[in-house]
Design a protein around this nucleic acid. Structure first.
Lengths: 255, 255
DNA sequence: ACAAAAGTGTTCCCCTTACACCCATGT
DNA sequence: ACATGGGTGTAAGGGGAACACTTTTGT
């Protein structure tokens, strides 16, 4: 047992590190690692993110992403799922992916916190999401975030949300990710509305239909029809297929 | 001053945490944060990654990515640049971007290490890269990594390299990233060979030329011509332009 | 009957592709 | 002269955009 490069005692090799680019006598800095989740959903045609209001300093009264510290023997992905479950009650069957890591030294004014951000996509949840401490959590349309009547986000969470939204928007182009916003089975109109809400555009229904169906395995017909709400021909119902990529992609108008 | 959620004393609020999803009495686990860099370049038409041979346990004799621990007051990006400079002598003017964070609890057998991986792209370096400790560092063609006569990579570095290579390959499609592999000024053939090496395809020179030049700001002519090596008409020389994205993208053949 | 939404057909146009051909230089 | 690589021209085919039109439901 010895004290070496990792700054802790553990039962393996004791040679000085040759592969780590740190000064020989330097201690490994203490860093707290947290996970923050950008949870996006669609509510009445608007892309929304889940945030909860902070009751403590710093940033008391501001809104923050669900998140918390990674446990000792916990994988990062598992931690993200746990934070989501504890703070929203969602045992996610939806999409969850790592987004990016934020490690600016003073992003948390108290101590060094490196935060691994995740992106989660879910269909609209029927029940209002309540934090495990009963804290005030709510959905905010992402387009309201910069505006005057929108929420003030804590820490560097504005940047994290912006990165998450941009990732989601971009991935809609070349992955079947849009289905993560829909409850199965869904109609092609449901799927189209995901793109329209996320990109802020209007898509031509006939062309969208052909495009989606032309990619084998994007969606598969379930053999039933939806009950129309308020007139109109019933739509066929689909489930997400096994395709992992869209070829060719469904590109946004110029960027 | 008080002991609170971040596990350290600091001069701000003392209320119990309401926004962090950790058990009230739990200590913040000690985690070491490191940065590993996937440095890619092109050598004689092959995409290569820089690795250095470990001289200590664990994984003594295996090859590892350049990397090291993040310093106390150091930004993640700065840390990546520092590791690169210390281990390869490169003061990167090339491309550097965050790749992904790897935090599996036992990815390092000694202690918990969360590693933020970076992707760096550089033109072929004339001098052989030597580590700051004189350690054995060399380029390996990425296609040799899985093979029998290729190197054995330490830790989860095979996964990190694979992710980095895939990121680079994908980003060539819709960003001007290929120019990061070329020393300026470069010819369009140089640029084309980047795509051919990275994707393992053969591209039609006339069509490639039109495609590249049709995106305004991808490359700009410098008004000179290259001296041909071994016959052939001299090519026009270009520099990277100001465009940040390719519209429409230069797509790979089906995936 | 009318409105509304789903779905089909059709045309135009741009981009990609493939390949023939010309240009400029080294040997 | 010939090989080599840079660069231009051009015709065929695929996919996207736009929109007319048909189908099926609710009111």
């Amino acid at each position: 047992m010895a004290r070496h490069r990792c700054g802790q005692t553990c039962p393996v090799a004791t040679n000085p590190p040759s592969n780590a680019a740190i000064p020989a006598a330097a201690a490994i800095p203490a860093v707290a690692v947290s996970v923050d989740v950008v949870l996006l959903t669609l509510r009445s045609g608007r892309l929304c993110v889940l945030v909860s209001q902070r009751a403590t300093e710093p940033f008391c009264g501001s809104w923050a992403l669900p998140g918390g510290f990674v446990a000792a023997d916990e994988d990062l992905d598992s931690s993200a799922r746990r934070q989501l479950a504890e703070e929203t009650g969602v045992t996610t069957t939806g999409h969850l992916e790592q987004l990016r890591t934020y490690g600016c030294p003073h992003r948390d004014p108290r101590t060094r916190v490196v935060s691994v951000a995740y992106l989660a996509l879910l269909p609209n949840l029927p029940q209002p999401t309540t934090g495990r401490d009963g804290q005030h959590a709510r959905w905010w349309p992402v387009e309201d975030l910069g505006s005057a009547d929108g929420p003030t986000l804590a820490f560097d969470h504005p940047q994290i949300v912006a990165d998450g939204v941009e990732r989601a928007r971009g991935k809609l182009e070349y992955t079947p990710l849009a289905a993560a916003f829909c409850e199965e089975p869904f109609t092609l109109a449901d799927l189209r509305r995901v793109y329209e809400a996320a990109w802020g555009v209007v898509l031509d229904p006939p062309n969208f239909r052909r495009k989606v169906l032309s990619t084998p395995g994007f969606v598969v017909a379930v053999g039933q029809r939806s009950s129309p709400r308020g007139g109109g021909r019933p739509a066929e119902l689909y489930r997400l297929g096994s395709a992992t990529a869209l070829h060719p992609p469904l590109l946004r108008r110029s960027v």
